[in-house]
């Protein structure tokens, strides 16, 4: 088993599948009256959050607690971080306290990689800057698999601000590894120029995307909906609008938002996902978010099971 989970690229197909299978077992715990396993009793998991993210922190906290680990929440507010302590000094402090795992959320891309150099315990990336969010990709894959029965061969359309999205980066890596076909849709300003040009080169020459994941880029949402098994809507930060990535929220919603009319272009079995928190009326309408196709609430539930599986496997719970 890997020691850290920093990127979707850390997971090969066998490891990812093992995590998803373990998560399925963990999910049965949630249905019990006593939602607790003794697997990580006596182990310490630190939630080190440099960004506000109530939902991710709570999800990791619930996961660790259901495995009977001791959980320490270390948030940047009201801690030594606010006094200007460096990441390295914080890492050494956690090390001295004997953290077995550090779950880190940080606004700077790569901060978990730095942390992993300075602590002996396992580091789990809970979202770093505009880089990755691998447990989100795992819970998304888990959700797709449980709804649609498979991952290999699925057509997954990821819509929105791919450029700044750690969710998109991790999903592209993991889904490619697991054999799904990923199509990225959004205004060209919000698709990384390298992916856009490589995808274009692959379209014209039938190759050329050797170094990057096997992805397709499309700027027309309506064109790809009829062949999508999964549509994953990304959150669009309203501040992107003031930075001229697109002219207005209304134009964005018109071209790239998912409303009821668009949703009806999807195949019968297709599902709609969103990592949350949603901007209702921007990238997704309430009609879609609250529809039977929507897996948004399920994703939250599955998040706990997947994070239980990750902590359990990283901390060697299966060998205990």
């Amino acid at each position: 088993m890997i020691r850290h989970l920093l990127s979707g690229a850390d997971l090969d197909a066998a490891t990812a599948t093992r995590i998803l299978d373990t998560a399925a077992e963990m999910a049965t715990v949630a249905g019990r009256e006593v939602k607790k396993l003794p697997a990580l009793r006596g182990r310490t998991v630190v939630n080190l959050f440099y960004e506000d993210s109530t939902r991710t922190r709570i999800s990791f906290e619930a996961a660790a607690k259901r495995l009977s680990a001791d959980v320490i929440n270390f948030s940047a507010k009201g801690s030594s971080v606010a006094k200007g302590e460096s990441l390295k000094d914080t890492a050494l402090t956690l090390q001295a306290m004997g953290a077995d795992a550090v779950v880190v959320r940080h606004p700077a891309s790569g901060a978990p990689h730095r942390l992993a150099e300075w602590v002996d315990g396992s580091v789990v990336n809970a979202g770093d800057g505009t880089h990755e969010h691998p447990t989100q990709a795992l819970l998304d894959a888990y959700t797709m698999r449980s709804r649609l029965g498979r991952l290999a061969g699925l057509s997954v359309t990821v819509v929105g601000d791919v450029l700044h999205s750690r969710v998109a980066r991790s999903n592209v890596l993991l889904l490619s590894t697991l054999g799904a076909k990923v199509t990225l849709v959004g205004p060209p300003t919000l698709i990384p120029v390298d992916w856009a040009t490589r995808a274009a080169a692959a379209n014209t020459s039938g190759g050329g995307a050797a170094q990057s994941p096997d992805i397709t880029v499309c700027y027309d949402l309506d064109a790809v909906l009829p062949t999508s098994d999964v549509v994953m809507m990304l959150r669009v930060q309203r501040e992107r609008m003031t930075d001229s990535y697109f002219p207005s929220a209304r134009e964005y919603a018109r071209r790239y938002g998912l409303d009821g009319q668009r949703m009806r272009r999807l195949p019968e079995h297709a599902i709609v996902m969103h990592p949350g928190p949603m901007n209702r009326g921007m990238e997704i309408t309430p009609e879609v978010a609250d529809s039977a196709r929507s897996t948004i609430v399920e994703q939250v539930t599955n998040g706990v099971s997947v994070r239980m599986a990750v902590l359990y496997l990283l901390l060697g719970g299966n060998n205990a």
Binding site: S109, G110, G129, E132, R166, D194, W195, Q211, S212
Partner: peptide, 11 residues
Amino acid sequence: EGAVSTRLGLT
């Protein structure tokens, strides 16, 4: 700005 920055999520 290129393939590596895209992968690493660095501006």
